[in-house]
């Protein structure tokens, strides 16, 4: 199962949602798979921070569906967030973990899931997230996305994806700081709020 194909399926289901995603090749893939979601997506570069940030966003905007596009390496970096998600039980957060069993962006050394022993969905269930599933084909991925986008409890999809990445796609040129401004302005416009307002004196 190719991550880009999964992203294309997910993108077709999104309109007003907000997305926070992890680092690496998935950034350029999401940039191309979901062009209509570019300003609604926060492209970050932080192992262990993506799902926590998505939780904070979901807490702040409880009426808005938030999607965390995390990775196996990122989730392994802070498994504790699964316990926090279970306890906080946000009604509007879908977590998708792209599990390619490697640190692909640095050439592909294996993560802990590569052994076949470590099961992130089982860890999530053990943490108390009842709806946590491993998916291995596109049909099931699409079905679980539909469920997760309607769910009223935390929903985790561990998508087992191929190690290879799409290279024939447009690169995203902006950095994390520009991405933050774009994303915040999108939230401001769609929520009717001011997050980064003018200084006392201009």
């Amino acid at each position: 199962m190719m991550r880009f194909d999964c992203m294309t399926i997910l993108a077709g289901k999104l309109k007003a949602e907000l997305v926070i995603l992890s680092l690496g090749a998935s950034v350029d893939e999401w940039y191309n798979a979901a062009p209509h979601m570019r300003s609604a997506s926060l492209f970050q570069q932080q192992l262990g921070c993506v799902t926590p940030q998505a939780l904070g966003l979901a807490v702040g905007l409880p009426h808005r569906r938030v999607i965390s596009l995390d990775t196996d390496g990122g989730m392994m970096f802070n498994l504790g967030i699964l316990a926090t998600l279970a306890n906080e039980c946000p009604k509007n957060l879908l977590v998708i973990v792209w599990d390619n069993e490697c640190y692909q962006s640095i050439g592909g050394p294996p993560t802990h899931t590569a052994t076949g022993i470590v099961d992130l969905a089982a860890i999530a269930r053990g943490a108390g997230i009842e709806c946590a599933y491993t998916v291995r084909d596109l049909d099931e991925f699409g079905r679980r996305c539909d469920e997760g986008l309607r769910a009223q409890t935390p929903f985790v999809i561990v998508a087992k994806v191929d190690r290879s990445v799409r290279r024939d796609i447009k690169r995203k040129h902006s950095d994390g700081r520009e991405d933050k401004y774009i994303f915040v302005r999108h939230v401001e416009a769609t929520e009717g709020v001011v997050i980064m307002g003018p200084s006392e004196h201009n």
Binding site: I20, L42, Q46, G48, C49, P52, Q53, A54, L55, G56, L57, A58, V59, G60, L61, T84, K180, F183, V184, V187, E191, I195
Partner: peptide
């Protein structure tokens, strides 16, 4: 990280 996400909202 959660606090950062709250700020984004």
């Amino acid at each position: 990280a959660i606090c950062g996400g709250v700020w984004l909202s």
